[in-house]
């Protein structure tokens, strides 16, 4: 019984992974085919980029603030408060900024896509598009995946900047560090080996959020329950996938840039 159950769940898991891979494959074959739904792409960019900005900004700001406040006492004990900008800079740019932003977006954008496409599937809007001669995969899925892929890195960069600003505020108030000193310290400790991999990683994060959200919504089960499930599992699967990508990205970055 136990092994049968394991085999079954393994089968379900593998089917899911296979389906997502197939879905991603369809994305890559269709993305270069005409016609391009450029207007819809822009609309989605606006929805995902601008509309997430406030959330990402507030989160980034608080993370920068809290991170600095939390690590300050420890550094103070070592008499190394002067290292704060470098430490905060490196950890935010390399890891915290991308992963926090991506998780926030998985919650906001991923579930949004899952629910939107799911309800469109349930209410036959996707069928209606198909029937009216518009390829819904191109119109709905490709635009969304592209939008998340391109918007997430920008959100990450802005989130990083805001987080660093939050950290600077703490340093400024507690340690009387000037704006110029803080940021020149931050940038003197950073290298391209920090910025480039984390930016590339952000593209993959964005792609994962769009892909899983669209997959879950597009293949939603009929019924209201299906929509909720699609939105929910989009977030769960995306969050998991984000950490896997993060892990792989660190390994790969390690190969290219010596740490």
């Amino acid at each position: 019984m136990g092994t049968q159950k394991t085999i079954n769940s393994l089968q379900v898991f593998l089917t899911e992974v296979g389906d997502i891979s197939y879905f991603a494959g369809r994305f890559f074959t269709d993305v270069f085919k005409r016609p391009f739904e450029f207007k819809e792409f822009l609309r989605q960019c606006y929805n995902m980029g601008n509309r997430s900005l406030l959330l990402v900004g507030v989160t980034g700001f608080i993370i920068g603030l809290v991170f600095t406040l939390q690590s300050r006492p420890t550094l103070q004990e070592f008499g190394a408060v002067a290292w704060m900008p470098s430490m905060v800079g490196i950890s935010i740019i390399r890891e915290i900024g991308p992963i926090i932003t991506a998780l926030i977006c998985a919650g906001r954008i991923g579930s949004g896509i899952g629910a939107e496409l799911g309800s469109m599937r349930v209410t036959e809007q996707i069928d209606a598009m198909e029937v009216s001669g518009t390829n819904p995969f191109k119109y709905l899925v490709i635009t969304r995946i592209l939008a998340t892929t391109f918007m997430l890195p920008i959100l990450v960069i802005i989130g990083d900047a805001i987080a660093l600003y939050g950290s600077y505020l703490v340093e400024n108030i507690k340690g009387d560090v000037s704006f110029q000193l803080y940021f020149s310290e931050v940038f003197s400790s950073l290298e391209f080996g920090d910025v480039i991999p984390s930016t590339i990683k952000s593209f993959f994060f964005g792609f994962a959020i769009g892909l899983v959200g669209c997959y879950k919504g597009y293949n939603c089960d009929k019924g209201t329950e299906g929509v909720g499930l699609a939105a929910n599992s989009a977030v769960v699967y995306t969050s998991l996938l984000l950490f896997v990508i993060d892990f792989v990205a660190v390994l790969v970055a390690d190969l290219f840039y010596e740490l």
Binding site: Y46, I154, V195
Partner: peptide, 25 residues
């Protein structure tokens, strides 16, 4: 919407370019 999107994208890209420039510097 398009204008706001453009501002957003330009802000992000200029931050990125500024960062890369400062590091390169």
């Amino acid at each position: 919407q398009k204008i706001k999107l453009a501002i957003f994208v330009i802000a992000g890209l200029s931050l990125f370019i500024l960062g890369v420039y400062l590091i390169g510097n």
